[in-house]
């Protein structure tokens, strides 16, 4: 089964498994609480209203850059990857998430508010992740 993330430490729970399999098919889903309507991305199995009946919804993956950092000194698990850009992006529905931003070539490309898109990226060792790319 495909695993999510460049690395992971937790035991694989069903939701993350489904999310990874969906990414393989090129689809990125969020979840929505059937009781109160609150939406979550990254997806959650349970809502903070303490309801656990959630439905999967398509995420509009266009995003704007909210903040970023360039990691020069990585944790042990990412030791071969540095430097890499970690960005926070905000989607049209107001939800925000963290992911690598890949494909920018100069600091001029890192303007706050710049348009991006969240896309799946297949990694080695049967892993997959989402990343932001310039849009």
């Amino acid at each position: 089964m495909t695993k999510f993330g460049y690395v992971s430490v937790e035991d694989y729970v069903p939701l993350v498994g489904e999310f990874a399999e969906s990414l393989v098919k090129g689809k990125i889903f969020a979840t929505k609480c059937k009781a109160c309507g609150k939406e979550y991305f990254p997806p959650r199995e349970e809502c903070i209203c303490l309801n656990d009946e959630m439905e999967k919804i398509d995420l509009d993956t266009s995003a704007k850059l909210v903040s970023y950092t360039i990691i020069h000194v990585p944790p042990e698990s990412h030791s071969t990857m540095a430097p890499y850009i970690i960005a926070i992006g905000e989607f049209p529905n107001g939800l925000k998430t963290m992911a690598h931003l890949v494909g920018v070539t100069s600091m001029d490309d890192l303007k706050i508010g710049r348009p991006m898109k969240l896309v799946p990226q297949t990694l080695e060792n049967e892993r997959i992740v989402y990343k932001f790319v310039p849009a």
């Binding site: 903040s67 360039i70 944790p75 963290m98």
Partner: peptide, 22 residues
């Protein structure tokens, strides 16, 4: 968050760097 942050290799300085940039 080990599910949605750790997999991206965000270090502790990285979290505060996100605040600094903003």
């Amino acid at each position: 968050d080990i599910r949605w942050e750790y997999p991206f290799g965000c270090t502790f300085p990285g979290f505060y760097a996100l605040l600094a940039t903003a």
